[in-house]
Simulated assay, not measured.
Amino acid sequence: MTPTGTNLLGLVKHIAGIESGYLGEVFGRPLSEPPAWFDDDMDEPNVDRWARVEETSVAIIDFYRRVWAHADATIEAVDLDATGRVPWWPAEHADVTLHQMIVLMIGETNRHVGHADIVRELIDGVAGLRPDFSSLPEGDQAWWANYRDRLEQTARQAATP
């Protein structure tokens, strides 16, 4: 995980939670069985960004699958121009369309998949599109260490007035 706690399972849990809100609750279609961490009484910081002891990876992934189905049902049932309201946003920005929320979720998902890619690289050192195809230069561990050092030195030199 990163110094701020970003981790793979937490990213899945977070994106599932925001998708259930933006493509469900906002359009009057809340989940019929929201997870316990949706409770406003939950007193854990960033509870949607990490798995508690009692939450299994299987349960979190299953929750995301249910959210996908629920979001798909919202997209099928609601016109793109239909309006909803994001109750946790400031009032002047709270009225939105389904189209806007779909675009927002594309951006959110894309951003968090990028985070997941970085965390995965920190875990196993794998980078690039696939093991059999990479847009990255070929290099062994020593080559990459030298490359990273050179980048850091260049950045430090550029920061020096």
Rank of each mutant, 00 (worst) to 15 (best):
D43M: 01
T109P: 03
D81C: 00
D43P: 03
R49E: 15
H115N: 10
P137D: 12
S20F: 00
G28K: 04
L104H: 15
T83G: 03
S32N: 11
G139T: 09
A82V: 05
I15T: 14
D39H: 08
A36W: 14
W89Y: 14
V119N: 08
I118N: 12
Q100M: 09
G24K: 03
A116G: 12
L98R: 04
V67F: 01
N110H: 13
G128C: 02
W68D: 11
I75T: 07
M105I: 10
T4S: 15
A36S: 13
Q153D: 15
V53N: 07
V26H: 01
H70F: 02
H93D: 14
E19G: 12
A155D: 13
P131W: 08
Y147I: 05
Q100T: 09
P161N: 03
H14D: 10
N146M: 02
R29A: 07
P35H: 07
M105Q: 15
I118L: 14
L11E: 13
R148P: 00
A145L: 05
D79L: 05
R150W: 14
D149K: 09
G21R: 13
Q157F: 03
D132T: 07
Q100P: 05
G24M: 02
W50S: 14
L122I: 10
G128I: 04
W143R: 11
I118Q: 09
P87K: 06
L136S: 06
R52C: 08
E138A: 04
N146F: 00
G128W: 00
A71D: 05
T97D: 05
A77E: 12
A69V: 04
A73L: 03
A159Y: 11
I102P: 01
R85I: 10
G125P: 08
L129G: 08
S134Q: 11
P137C: 03
I60D: 10
Q157L: 07
A51P: 12
I106K: 00
Y147C: 06
D43S: 13
G24Q: 02
A91R: 09
T2C: 04
A59N: 13
L122R: 07
D79K: 11
M101D: 07
V78T: 14
A16F: 00
W68S: 04
D43Y: 01
W144I: 01
D79E: 15
Y22L: 12
Q157V: 08
L136V: 04
D140A: 11
L129A: 12
Q100D: 15
D95F: 00
Q153G: 10
V96S: 05
G84Q: 07
V96W: 02
T2L: 08
V67S: 06
D72K: 05
H93V: 07
Y64D: 12
A158K: 11
H70L: 01
K13I: 08
V58A: 15
S32G: 09
L31N: 09
R49H: 14
H70I: 02
H115K: 06
A59R: 12
R156Y: 10
R150H: 15
A127Y: 01
V47E: 05
I60G: 08
R150Y: 14
